[in-house]
């Protein structure tokens, strides 16, 4: 798994790429929680995720719950087909805020 963090119009955009699995999800978790800890809007770009498993989903869930507690916006963006299928299997596709593109997400103000 690769990741990168950049700022775009006031939001922190975390891009995750490749396989988010049992080996890499601890890193994803740390990155996501660090960003959420900055009390800014966090958008997770999932367009380049080839594979995500339950541990990867769990990292997203934890970051989501942490942001909610802090009252800061947290959304998933451009979720790849493979990742969306897994979120659907977990019935989490309606719990996360999911935007089709970064522009949509920023326009929405989340």
């Amino acid at each position: 798994m690769d990741h990168s963090i950049r700022e775009d119009r006031g939001a922190l955009v975390v891009s995750l790429a490749g396989d988010v699995d049992l080996e890499s999800s601890p890193r994803a978790r740390t990155v996501l929680l660090d960003c959420v800890g900055q009390n800014r809007t966090v958008l997770v770009d999932m367009s380049a995720i080839d594979y995500i498993d339950s541990s990867g989903v769990a990292s997203l869930v934890e970051a989501f719950q942490s942001a909610r507690k802090a009252g800061s916006p947290f959304a998933l963006v451009s979720v790849s087909e493979a990742a969306l299928r897994v979120l659907q299997l977990a019935r989490l596709d309606r719990i996360f805020t999911i935007h089709a593109s970064l522009d949509d997400a920023l326009a929405d103000g989340s």
Binding site: D53, S54, S55, V57, V61, E62, Q65, L89, L92
Partner: peptide
């Protein structure tokens, strides 16, 4: 929505 048990849920779902 807490983590854990999700993997087994995936297996049974699939």
């Amino acid at each position: 929505t807490r983590p854990g048990g999700l993997g087994t849920h995936f297996i049974r779902e699939i």
